[in-house]
Computed example of a mutant assay.
Amino acid sequence: MVPQWLDEQEQRTWRAWLAVTELLPRALDAQLQRDAGLTHPAYVVLAMLSEAPDRSRRMSDLARVANQSQSRLSHTVARLEERGWVRRERATEDRRGNLAVLTDAGQEVVSRVAPGHVAAVKEGLFAALTPEQTQLLEVALTAVLERLDPDATLRVPEAG
């Protein structure tokens, strides 16, 4: 079987994608480290909890919406617990699962850091794009996402 190599356009697109997926998270991490001493994955955990009813989620659900493995999430939550921003509780409905709960102090961090994070996202991604390019990027990324997660079980739910 003859390998099907990337054509020139695909190669340029792939390399741009690789660079963006390295450089944008690095820029977001730098902003979050500067403003709150947080990594981007830790901020995502706090943000996902802040958007949840009662500011809590099952650990398994939190891992999914934060795009982290169970093991990585456990370490992230442990670090956030040390800072008093998250606590773990047993799920009351079945007593088998564990919940991560955003504390008042954690909510204060999210409220304080979110405006700078949004500004960093806008500067790092959207400032370089026209509204039409933003729409095309959404269409393209949604198509890739549909291929990678056709039943929508792995992706972060849309805010609404």
Rank of each mutant, 00 (worst) to 15 (best):
Arg79Cys: 00
Ala114Trp: 06
Val139Met: 13
Arg87Gly: 02
Thr103Gly: 04
Arg147Ile: 11
Gly97Cys: 01
Arg112Tyr: 03
Gly97Glu: 05
Thr130Met: 11
Asp104Asn: 11
Ala143Tyr: 07
Gln135His: 11
Thr130Ser: 15
Arg88Met: 04
Arg147Val: 08
Ala91Lys: 02
Leu129Arg: 04
Ala120Thr: 02
Leu154Pro: 01
Glu132Met: 06
Val139Ile: 13
Ala140Glu: 01
Ala100Trp: 02
Glu108Trp: 03
Glu132Arg: 15
Val101Met: 03
Glu138Thr: 05
Glu138Val: 09
Gly97His: 13
Arg95Gln: 11
Asn98Tyr: 11
Pro131Val: 09
Ala140Ile: 02
Gln107Ile: 00
Ala152Val: 02
Trp85His: 01
Gly116Lys: 12
Leu145Gly: 14
Leu136Asp: 14
His117Lys: 05
Gly124Ser: 04
Glu108Ala: 15
Val121Pro: 00
Arg88Ile: 09
Thr103Arg: 02
Ser111Asn: 13
Leu141Glu: 04
Pro115Gly: 03
Trp85Cys: 00
Asn98Gly: 05
Val121Tyr: 13
Leu141Gly: 12
Val144Glu: 14
Thr153Phe: 07
Val144Ala: 15
Val113Asn: 04
Thr130Gly: 05
Arg83Phe: 05
Ala143Thr: 04
Val144Lys: 12
Val121Arg: 13
Glu81Lys: 06
Glu81Ser: 03
Arg112Glu: 07
Arg155Leu: 09
Glu138Leu: 15
Leu148Thr: 01
Glu132Gly: 08
Glu123Asn: 06
Thr130Tyr: 05
Gln135Leu: 15
Thr103Leu: 01
Ala78Thr: 12
Arg95Glu: 08
Leu145Val: 01
Val101Pro: 02
Gln107Glu: 14
Pro131Tyr: 07
Asp151Gln: 12
Ala143Cys: 04
Val110Lys: 08
Gly84Ala: 06
Thr153Cys: 07
Leu141Tyr: 07
Leu129Thr: 00
Arg79Lys: 14
Arg96Glu: 09
Arg96Met: 14
Pro115Ser: 10
Glu123Lys: 12
Lys122Asp: 08
Val110Ile: 05
Arg87Gln: 13
Ala152Glu: 10
Arg83Asn: 04
Ala91Tyr: 03
Thr134Gly: 09
Arg147Lys: 13
Asp151Phe: 10
Ala105His: 02
Leu129Cys: 12
Arg87Cys: 03
Gly106Asn: 07
Leu154Gly: 01
Thr134Glu: 11
Gln107His: 12
Arg83Glu: 10
Asp94Pro: 00
Leu141Lys: 04
Ala128His: 14
